[in-house]
Amino acid sequence: MLHKNSMMSGRIISNREIAKDHFLMSLKVSSAESSFQEASPGQFVMLRVKGRKFPFLGRPLSIYSIYPDDGGFIVELLYRVVGEGTYVISRLKPDEEMYIMGPLGRGFDISPDHSCVILIAGGIGIAPLSFLCEHYRRCAAGRPQKIICYAGVQRSNLLVGLERMEEICSGVRISTDDGSRGYHGLVTELFKNDLSSYGHRDSIIYACGPSAMLKGLAGILKDQSVSCQVSVEERMACGVGACLGCAVRVKSGYKRVCRDGPVFDIHEIVWD
């Protein structure tokens, strides 16, 4: 099927800095026929600034939230400024227009078979996990008995996106690298300390964060039977699977983060 509105226009409703270098953008997409009604947690959008030629590639940002609004959709994106592209996006003001393409990629495989859901977020990796949490809230019927969230950041004033987590999760555990709040150390260590308390068969882990964190998690889960899906990041050009730029090493070769992912089984990826 042909999506005429593949490259939609989004009008910025708000774009505020909620912690140092961390922004929350709210975009209004007017088309009611947009594919956003099918957006699932873990998917992302490609964003490009209208009327500005450079940086010229879109920037992939994972979806923080989507909800219908007045014949269209509001798309929320929680992002961190990491380079020129995200810096330019962070400077945009309300009413400015952006090109938005999406939702793209394969999101989390949300299995109803697990009574306990464990979310592990490193830094801005909380964005898609928060959307996942929101998904559970909306579908009350298939809601797991228990949702536990682990959120790790460098220091306490960089904690973002926790509001929904605190409302929906049975427990939110925080770690900071500098000990300014919660556990003093890595979020993976904090989780590891609790690991034995979870039933491996009825639990599932969803994680997103820096690759060092995910690699650490892969090490912890190496000989464990618990299911774990991770959302990974790589530099992208097209976002639709054509350029093969965003390759990630998996056991069978390379896969495309944008199309085969960004969510993968943690054991499928080769963490080197």
Binding site: K53, F54, P55, F56, L57, G85, E234, R235, M236, A237, C243, L244, G245, C246, A247, V248, R249, G253, Y254
Partner: peptide
Amino acid sequence: EGNPPQRIMETPCGMLNSI
């Protein structure tokens, strides 16, 4: 199989690729 990542980089008015 192609080359190991990182495979692409945006540069001023262009991009580098090594797929």
